[in-house]
């Protein structure tokens, strides 16, 4: 579960919503706000992203979220990407200067943070195209693989049920061959239902064993016959 979440966070950081599960992506942000682990993951992914994009300010502040939220509280005017661009444009030369000198002044730090935030927004927009291109390449690579495999399959129009082939090991292992358990009638009371369920399970188990034996006998005999079969040729 958490793996899926971190994956979703990763894709959120990369600026496209996770395709794995809609319910997860919908509640992801909420979860992230509540869950400390997830929010730290979010933070780390952004840091990684920044390092990769070479956007790390020289004064590296590991915990930006608090200062950023304070900055956002002050600078509530950053509403659209355009305004953020303007802000960043205004402050860009200023920010580079400021970044070089490590400022201990709290006020300076605040502007710095705002700049960081706006820089990041800008980077996001600039990189919006990049993932699209990557997706395109990845998609065509995947399509190529599928096409490669299905190259000679085009005339196969009917869907053969071999896709549902049971991959349960047969020879030498005790695993029963899996089949769907039929659902019990709903009218029955809880207890009798449990009893019948149990009886059915036992019945099913013995059926399975019998079935397993039948199939295994066939497989064994087949192998044997193939060995001896070569005699005739």
């Amino acid at each position: 579960m958490s793996e899926i979440k971190t994956e979703s966070i990763s894709s959120l950081v990369d600026n496209y919503s996770p395709s794995t599960d809609d319910s997860i992506s919908a509640h992801l942000v909420d979860n992230m706000l509540k869950d400390e682990h997830l929010s730290s993951t979010w933070q780390n992914y952004h840091l990684i992203g920044d390092v990769l994009r070479d956007e790390v300010p020289q004064s590296l502040q590991l915990d930006l979220s608090e200062t950023i939220s304070a900055a956002i509280a002050q600078e509530a005017t950053i509403l659209s990407p355009n305004s953020s661009m303007k802000t960043s444009g205004k402050n860009s030369h200023l920010s580079t200067d400021e970044n070089v000198s490590i400022s201990n002044n709290s006020a300076a730090q605040q502007t710095n943070n705002v700049v960081d935030a706006s820089n990041r927004f800008k980077a996001k927009i600039a990189n919006l195209i990049k993932p699209m291109g990557q997706v395109a390449i990845a998609a065509s690579a995947a399509a190529l693989m599928i096409v490669g495999v299905q190259n000679n399959v085009i005339d196969n129009s009917t869907v053969t049920p071999s896709q549902v082939v049971q991959t349960v090991p047969l020879s030498g292992y005790a695993n029963p061959v899996s089949f769907n358990v039929q659902s019990t009638p709903t009218q029955q009371s809880q207890q009798s239902r449990q009893q019948t369920q149990q009886a059915m399970n036992e019945q099913l188990a013995s059926d399975r064993i019998a079935q397993q034996r039948r199939l295994q006998a066939l497989l064994k005999d087949h192998n044997q016959q193939v060995k001896l079969g070569s005699n005739i040729k």
């Binding site: 082939v165 049971q166 991959t167 349960v168 020879s171 039948r214 199939l215 066939l218 497989l219």
Partner: peptide, 11 residues
């Protein structure tokens, strides 16, 4: 019908 597969071998 019952069936099981052992690799590519269908029973």
């Amino acid at each position: 019908p019952e069936y099981a597969s052992d690799g590519a071998t269908m029973v």
